[in-house]
Amino acid sequence: MAADPLTTAIDAGTPLVVLSPHLDDAVLSCGGLMSHAAGRTDVRVVTFFTEADAPPYTLSGRRYLRQVGRRDADRLYRERRAEDREVMERLGVDWHHLGLSDCLFRRKPGASGGRNGWVSHVLPESSYIYPTYRLHIATGRISPHDTYTLGRVRASLEQLASPAHTVLLAPSGVGGHVDHVLVRTAAELSGRPVVYYSDFPYNQQHRPDLGFVERNALVEVEWSRQLAAKVELVRGYRSQADALFPKGALPLVPEIYLFPDSARASYGPVGDAR
């Protein structure tokens, strides 16, 4: 069977840069591919949203903390960064944490947080860019208050993830999580060749953004190698695994990658990576 474009690039030793919105997204969506690529070529994971601001938190933020059994967001994100370092080192790939605040804890520019101002103390949502999960974060709409963050993501992408002859992997934004859409938007605006990954586990309940797929003339490739290795890597994110998979089992489903149909000539023929 003909090799898929990602296998072709990896086997040729082309470096791989994975853009990860949060401190588990790269492994959740691309863990099988990265397990195969590690040792065959250079792999680097660049994670954007790796911090949390100080309390008071929104109701959505507090619900998330309860879901993962934590009370302090700053302490949780220190734990999450440590987990990610351990997983990356076990996998044998390079990593970089950019230190931007997760949208659950991201305040409007100039907002003072909870230490000053009684309004933000009584109603924390008033100072947050995305005050609720369902009505703001999960809509996939980037807030006008978040243009600074988008600029930071774009600048970081230019500096860290765009050497010549590199396969750049970015989220496709399945499920509409705004942090995923921010990274996708920055990758799309970069003007560089990008392969997009289907965001797992969101893709188990949501369909791709057809407007985005059609706009970029994307075609799908399935990747089914190293899925057992991926399961072990996901378990390394101890603070998140139980909340993500409350029934305890990670579905062994193929990873999905989308690339421009025009890239056939440069990446090789399309095929199933099984």
Rank of each mutant, 00 (worst) to 15 (best):
R75A: 14
A170Q: 07
L233W: 01
P163K: 03
R85M: 14
F200E: 11
E83I: 03
T41M: 03
G110D: 10
L227Y: 00
V194I: 11
L16K: 01
E125T: 08
L23G: 04
L28V: 03
R81W: 02
L135Q: 15
T139H: 09
D53S: 13
V27H: 03
V18Q: 00
G151T: 03
A243E: 03
V183D: 02
E158S: 14
L6M: 07
H177M: 09
S60T: 11
G117E: 05
P124C: 09
P269E: 10
V253W: 02
P5T: 00
F200I: 11
H121G: 15
H165E: 12
Y133H: 13
R62L: 13
V219Y: 00
Y202V: 10
D25A: 05
V45M: 13
G117Q: 06
V174G: 04
P55A: 08
G99F: 03
R152K: 15
W118Q: 13
D242V: 12
E83Q: 04
T8S: 04
I10P: 02
R152W: 09
P56L: 05
E125L: 04
A263W: 13
P163F: 07
E220V: 11
G117W: 11
A170F: 10
L100A: 01
A161H: 07
A155Q: 14
P56E: 08
Y202N: 04
L168V: 13
C103W: 05
L123G: 03
R75Y: 11
R238N: 07
A82Q: 10
T166P: 04
T47H: 04
V45C: 07
Y133W: 14
W223C: 07
V17L: 05
G173Y: 06
R44C: 07
G151D: 09
A82K: 01
K108T: 12
P21E: 03
L182D: 08
T58V: 06
W118V: 15
S172V: 09
P21Q: 05
V219G: 01
